[in-house]
Simulated scan of single mutants.
Amino acid sequence: MDAATRARTASDLLAAYDGQAVPPLTSTYPELDLEDAYEIQLLQVRQRIADGRVVKGHKVGLTSAAMQKQLGVDQPDYGHLFDDMFHAEHTAIPVGDFLQPRIEPEIAFVLKKPLAGPGVTVAEALAAVDFVLPALEIVDSRIEDWKIGLFDTIADNASSGAVVLGSRPRPVDLVDLRLAGCVLTKNAQIVATGAGGAVLGSPVNSLVWLANTVGALGVRLEAGHVVLPGSCTPMTPVVGGDVVTATFAGLGTVTARFAKEK
Rank of each mutant, 00 (worst) to 15 (best):
A3G: 15
A7G: 12
T9G: 13
A10T: 07
S11R: 14
A15Y: 02
Y17A: 06
D18W: 03
D18H: 08
G19V: 08
P23R: 14
P23E: 13
S27N: 11
D33Y: 05
L34S: 12
E35S: 14
Y38D: 05
I40N: 06
L43V: 09
Q44V: 07
V45C: 11
R48A: 09
I49D: 06
R53T: 04
R53V: 00
G57N: 06
K59S: 00
G61E: 00
L62H: 01
L62E: 02
A65M: 11
A65W: 05
A65G: 11
G72Q: 12
G72K: 13
G72F: 01
D77H: 11
Y78S: 09
Y78P: 04
D83I: 05
F86G: 04
A88P: 11
P94W: 05
P94R: 09
P101E: 02
R102Q: 13
R102T: 06
I103A: 03
E104Q: 10
P105G: 10
I107C: 08
F109C: 01
V110L: 04
L111W: 04
K113C: 02
P114Q: 08
L115E: 02
V120N: 01
V122P: 00
A125P: 05
A127L: 03
D130P: 12
D130N: 07
F131S: 14
P134Y: 09
L136Y: 00
E137K: 06
R142S: 09
K147W: 07
K147R: 15
I148H: 01
G149S: 14
I154D: 00
I154N: 00
I154E: 01
A155V: 12
N157R: 07
S160W: 02
G161F: 00
A162T: 04
V163G: 00
L165M: 15
S167F: 06
R168N: 10
R168K: 13
P171N: 11
V172F: 02
L174V: 12
D176Q: 11
R178W: 03
L179F: 09
L184G: 06
N187I: 10
A188F: 15
V191S: 01
G194L: 14
G194D: 07
G196C: 01
G197S: 14
G197A: 11
A198L: 04
A198K: 09
A198P: 12
V199Q: 02
N205C: 08
S206T: 02
V208I: 11
W209T: 07
W209S: 08
A211P: 08
N212R: 14
T213K: 14
G215P: 06
A216L: 10
G218R: 08
R220L: 04
L221G: 07
L221K: 09
A223H: 00
H225K: 10
P229R: 04
G230I: 13
T233V: 13
M235W: 06
V238E: 02
V238G: 04
V238Q: 03
V239C: 01
V239N: 10
G240P: 08
G241T: 00
G241W: 03
D242F: 05
T245C: 04
A246L: 04
F248V: 12
G250F: 10
G250D: 09
L251T: 13
G252A: 12
V254P: 10
T255P: 13
T255V: 07
A256D: 02
A259L: 07
K260Q: 12
